[in-house]
Every structure is written in C-alpha cells, then in structure tokens.
Amino acid sequence: MSVWDLLQNRLFDSVVLSLESVGWDVGTLGVADRELIALWRAETTITCTGFLSYLGKWGLGCCCIAITALEDIGAPIRAEVLRSMLNIAGPHLNRVGVESYIDILLSLSETDRLRLRRLDEAFGLCSEPLARLIVEHYGAAKFAH
C-alpha cells in the first residue's frame, strides 16, 4: 500500500464519519464531501461487486457525481469507463418491471453483459493514479484541519 493510498483512506474515513454524523444524509454535506463519498462508493462497490451493484445501491445521482468528480480531479479515463457503464445500463433504468440491478442485468443482451463485465474490470485497472489525484484535489483542505 502506498502513501497515497493511506492518505486517500484517511480522506475517505473522515468523510464517512462526517456522513455518519449527519444521519447518512448525503444532501447535508458540502460539495467536496459529496464528491468524496461518490468516489469512495464507486471505488469500493464497483471493484468488489460491479457497476450494477453500485448503481442499484447508490443510485444514478451518486454515479453522475462520481463521473464529474473523476473528470475534475484529472481522471478522464476512469470517468469515461464509468460513463460507458452507465450508457449500457441507463436505458434499462426506467423500464417496466425493473426494480433492482438484477432486473437490469437480466434485461441486457449477452453482448451488453460482456461489455459491462469488461468495463467493470477496466475500472479498477485504469492507469490513472486515482489515490494520488484524490489526495491532491481534496486533501489540502481536509489535512489542514
């Protein structure tokens, strides 16, 4: 584990404690904290259980915040991977009978399931130094306290 990973984990731990202190109401957090929460949720959920689980658990709003945050911190490749995953699953969100991410998975063609699986893998393998980018973008204000 690198120093960047350790510092990123400190940022994530701090923002999760802030979220817990406001009763898990993300809307009460400032913009930077909402972005950190969206990035934390994307990184941990997509890496562990995949994009559809992420989308089902945290929603479209969280996904959109994460895409914007990734672009803002200088991670355009990872933002594009996340956007591509959303472009595959997004059209299925409002279909009749879709109540969970499993319903979305079942409504995808085999080709789209394969594309989504490959994008899930690509999300964690992007060459961008995500931990460093997150710490450099959000860390100065957080570590100054």
Results as ranks from 00 to 15, higher is better:
1 M>C: 07
4 W>Q: 10
7 L>V: 10
8 Q>Y: 12
10 R>A: 13
11 L>V: 06
12 F>M: 07
13 D>G: 09
13 D>E: 15
14 S>V: 07
15 V>W: 04
22 V>I: 07
23 G>A: 07
24 W>Y: 14
26 V>K: 08
28 T>C: 14
29 L>C: 12
29 L>G: 08
29 L>R: 12
31 V>E: 11
31 V>H: 09
36 L>G: 02
37 I>R: 08
39 L>H: 04
50 G>V: 14
51 F>E: 05
54 Y>N: 03
55 L>E: 04
55 L>P: 00
56 G>R: 11
57 K>E: 13
58 W>T: 01
60 L>W: 10
62 C>M: 12
63 C>P: 00
63 C>M: 01
65 I>S: 09
69 A>E: 00
75 A>S: 11
75 A>H: 05
79 A>S: 12
79 A>I: 01
83 R>A: 07
84 S>T: 14
85 M>Y: 05
86 L>Q: 04
87 N>Q: 12
92 H>R: 08
98 V>L: 03
98 V>R: 02
99 E>N: 05
100 S>N: 14
101 Y>S: 05
101 Y>G: 00
102 I>H: 13
103 D>T: 01
104 I>Y: 01
108 L>C: 06
109 S>P: 10
114 L>T: 13
115 R>G: 06
115 R>Q: 08
116 L>F: 06
120 D>C: 10
121 E>Q: 14
122 A>N: 08
125 L>T: 05
126 C>H: 04
127 S>P: 10
128 E>V: 00
132 R>Q: 10
134 I>Q: 01
134 I>R: 03
138 Y>H: 05
140 A>P: 00
140 A>I: 08
144 A>Q: 01
